[in-house]
């Protein structure tokens, strides 16, 4: 295990060290102490390593992640896991706004609550939140899955494309063109797989699926007033 004291090593040197790890590195376990809410911790990683941050992080932790597993033992600031491509980010506390924005792949797990705009413009990432999520989540979501074990705020899935949303609790309101959908066998299987991967014990049968009503895909003159 390699331990880095962020307050002594500094952000650039820390990220540089992590960036230097190759696909076949044998230094696979890293620990970052004294993060003190710093921005851009463990951003742009591209190696199968596991980084554990002991404390809360600021903006953009784990942004653009590929392959790496990042554990945050605290809460995470705005834009955590932005544009994640692969790998996994696990947040033990809460996550601030626009978690996993534009994420293409991989998984983000939040043990607490996620704030507004969770999964905004998601493009393939899977996000599993054990608590609640805030308003405007998954706005323009294109693909991937957003699983919420608690409640969702206002305007869930506004203007979404093919991203899927599974919510166990209540949804304060659905966004434009987002609708409740039937939970078929394939969805129960998919959801069970996502919960297993996230390490969260919940019954898929208790969730409701939401997704695009597909009425905004093509221009319709009757909708002109809505633009």
């Amino acid at each position: 295990m390699q331990t880095i004291d962020l307050s002594e090593t500094g952000l650039r040197a820390t990220n540089k060290m992590l960036h230097a790890q190759a696909d076949n590195t044998n230094q696979t376990a890293w620990e970052i102490v004294n993060p003190k809410g710093a921005h851009a911790i463990a951003c742009g990683l591209n190696a199968p390593i596991e980084v554990t941050v002991k404390g809360s992080t600021g903006y953009y932790c784990g942004g653009m992640n590929q392959q790496a597993t990042i554990n945050i033992h605290g809460s995470a600031g705005p834009g955590t896991g932005e544009n994640i491509m692969s790998g996994k980010i696990v947040i033990e506390g809460d996550a601030s706004q626009y978690l996993g924005a534009t994420g293409h792949g991989g998984m983000i797990v939040v043990k607490g609550n996620a704030s507004s705009r969770c999964g905004i413009s998601m493009k393939g990432v899977n996000i599993v939140v054990q608590g609640n999520i805030g308003h405007m989540s998954a706005f323009m979501g294109q693909s991937g899955n957003l699983v919420v074990c608690g409640d969702a705020g206002d305007a869930l899935g506004d203007s979404c494309y093919e991203a899927r949303f599974f919510v166990r609790g209540t949804v304060k309101s659905l966004g434009a063109d987002c609708e409740k959908k039937e939970m078929r066998e394939e969805h129960l299987t998919l959801l069970q797989g996502l919960l297993d991967e996230a390490g969260i014990d919940a019954d898929p049968a208790e969730f409701t699926r939401y997704g695009s009503a597909r009425t905004l895909y093509n221009f319709d003159v009757d909708n002109a007033g809505a633009y």
Binding site: K36, G37, A38, S56, G58, Y59, S75, G77
Partner: peptide, 13 residues
């Protein structure tokens, strides 16, 4: 002991 506000968490660390 207190209630604190910060634009970011790092202001309070």
């Amino acid at each position: 002991q207190y209630v604190a506000f910060g634009s970011e968490y790092r202001a309070m660390v």
